[in-house]
Simulated assay, not measured.
Amino acid sequence: MRYYFIAGEASGDLHASNLIRELMRKDESAVVRGFGGELMEKAGMQLVKHYRDMAFMGFLPVLLNLRTIKKNFITCEQDLLQFQPDVLVLVDYPGFNLRMAEFAKAHGIRVFYYISPKIWAWKTHRIKKIKAFVDEMFTILPFETEFYRQFDYPVNYVGNPVLDAVQSIPPKQPGAFFKKGNNMPDKPIIALLPGSRLQEIRSLLPRMLKAAASFKTHQLIVTAAPNIPDEVYRELLKGYEASLLQGKTYEVLQQADVAVLASGTVSLEAGVICCPQVVCYRMAGGALFFKIGQKVLKIKWVSLVNLILQRTAVRELLQHQCTVKNIREELEKILNNPAYRKQIDANYRELINRLGEPGASARAASLMVAKLQQKK
């Protein structure tokens, strides 16, 4: 069968790549094409456009790049029709993907959605488009089944692919071996993970660096997003002693005493790896956007760890709260308060238990192939 994938960011690229591998195992005739990243390409997909050309975040960047966004839609629509897949598989990224779902449906192409848009957080009205244009939704968070049920829309809960991704990495290396292999001093690590979008990196990394640099007993490691040029990081790292590593996010989280990270999938990844964390989010607008967000958002937390556990298991520093002082204070607690750290460890054990068994990618692939074969 022929599969067309669309993923618009780094985490989507990772989870879609694992799904593609499983689809190819279960469907020997599988041909995969689409928008995504190098991981999807490595898994066997014919890459049409890289997500680095699609990752616009926030009102102003979207406004300034409307021409590019429109061109991306036209390219995708034309390529989809030319390829004529048995199914369009969408991975999160709702602003782009829901429009493509409508287009595909209008042209008689089946639509599967893997990793639901976060409509339980905001823009709940998108449920109308999902019900109208998405044939099957494959969800990865346990609470999403109940959320969709209230709209009379059955979904396929397959478990969380973060468990698969983390399970696929080698066991933790001895600290000294890891540091020597990466030309680092033999000092404990504070990991800084400022996200995968240029705007959030420029907003968060300077604050992270300034806060973490206070802890002289530790060294700083910044994980680089594959779609961001090294020059961006080098400019921001001027004046700081910090190592920059690319393609080793999980290994860094395994080694770190604590991670300061951008809100997103990486929060859940850190939780599954059991690395204590400080969750950060800050874009233009500060306190005003925070107040607006409180009215617009339908959730109490933004990090997946807290959402799944339904309590504040890890500290979130959002908008005007994301200051050097607040980051530094939270790092101090994690690094120097054994009872506080012990509670975080207990929270992570509960989180892993709630996520269930690994194998989300394989379960999703089996279901997709079965549903496509039923319609033949």
Results as ranks from 00 to 15, higher is better:
residue 6 I to M: 10
residue 7 A to Y: 03
residue 7 A to H: 03
residue 10 A to G: 09
residue 11 S to N: 08
residue 12 G to W: 03
residue 15 H to L: 13
residue 16 A to Q: 07
residue 18 N to H: 04
residue 19 L to E: 04
residue 20 I to R: 01
residue 23 L to A: 09
residue 26 K to L: 14
residue 29 S to K: 13
residue 30 A to T: 06
residue 30 A to P: 00
residue 32 V to A: 01
residue 33 R to F: 01
residue 33 R to Q: 10
residue 33 R to D: 03
residue 36 G to F: 01
residue 37 G to K: 01
residue 37 G to A: 11
residue 37 G to S: 10
residue 42 K to Q: 11
residue 46 Q to P: 02
residue 50 H to T: 08
residue 51 Y to I: 07
residue 57 M to S: 15
residue 61 P to K: 09
residue 62 V to L: 14
residue 62 V to F: 06
residue 67 R to K: 13
residue 70 K to R: 15
residue 71 K to V: 00
residue 73 F to I: 09
residue 73 F to C: 07
residue 76 C to S: 12
residue 78 Q to N: 12
residue 84 Q to G: 08
residue 85 P to N: 06
residue 87 V to T: 04
residue 88 L to G: 01
residue 89 V to L: 12
residue 89 V to P: 00
residue 91 V to T: 02
residue 94 P to R: 13
residue 100 M to W: 01
residue 100 M to Q: 07
residue 101 A to E: 02
residue 103 F to N: 07
residue 107 H to C: 12
residue 111 V to S: 02
residue 111 V to N: 02
residue 113 Y to K: 04
residue 114 Y to A: 07
residue 118 K to A: 11
residue 120 W to E: 08
residue 122 W to L: 11
residue 124 T to F: 12
residue 127 I to C: 06
residue 132 A to Q: 15
residue 134 V to H: 01
residue 134 V to G: 02
residue 134 V to S: 04
residue 135 D to Y: 05
residue 136 E to T: 12
residue 137 M to T: 06
residue 137 M to K: 08
residue 140 I to F: 04
residue 144 E to Y: 05
residue 145 T to L: 11
residue 145 T to Q: 14
residue 146 E to L: 13
residue 148 Y to P: 03
residue 149 R to Y: 07
residue 153 Y to A: 13
residue 155 V to F: 07
residue 155 V to C: 14
residue 160 N to R: 10
residue 162 V to F: 06
residue 164 D to I: 06
residue 165 A to L: 11
residue 166 V to L: 09
residue 170 P to G: 09
residue 172 K to D: 10
residue 173 Q to S: 14
residue 175 G to K: 13
residue 175 G to P: 11
residue 178 F to N: 05
residue 179 K to M: 14
residue 181 G to D: 12
residue 181 G to P: 05
residue 186 D to S: 11
residue 187 K to T: 08
residue 193 L to V: 10
residue 194 P to G: 13
residue 200 E to H: 00
residue 202 R to I: 08
residue 203 S to H: 08
residue 203 S to K: 06
residue 203 S to W: 02
residue 206 P to F: 09
residue 207 R to M: 14
residue 208 M to Y: 04
residue 209 L to N: 01
residue 209 L to A: 05
residue 213 A to L: 12
residue 222 V to I: 08
residue 229 P to S: 13
residue 231 E to W: 04
residue 242 A to G: 12
residue 244 L to W: 06
residue 249 T to W: 01
residue 255 Q to C: 11
residue 257 D to E: 15
residue 258 V to I: 13
residue 263 S to Y: 00
residue 264 G to R: 02
residue 266 V to L: 14
residue 267 S to W: 05
residue 270 A to L: 10
residue 270 A to Q: 06
residue 272 V to N: 02
residue 282 R to N: 06
residue 282 R to I: 05
residue 283 M to S: 09
residue 284 A to V: 12
residue 284 A to T: 12
residue 286 G to W: 01
residue 289 F to N: 10
residue 293 G to N: 02
residue 305 V to F: 02
residue 306 N to I: 03
residue 307 L to F: 05
residue 312 T to W: 07
residue 316 E to F: 02
residue 317 L to K: 00
residue 323 T to P: 01
residue 325 K to D: 15
residue 326 N to S: 15
residue 327 I to C: 13
residue 329 E to M: 15
residue 330 E to F: 02
residue 340 Y to D: 12
residue 342 K to Q: 15
residue 344 I to N: 05
residue 347 N to S: 15
residue 348 Y to R: 04
residue 357 E to W: 00
residue 359 G to H: 02
residue 363 R to P: 02
residue 366 S to E: 11
residue 367 L to F: 09
residue 367 L to I: 11
residue 370 A to H: 08
residue 370 A to E: 11
residue 371 K to H: 10
residue 375 K to T: 12
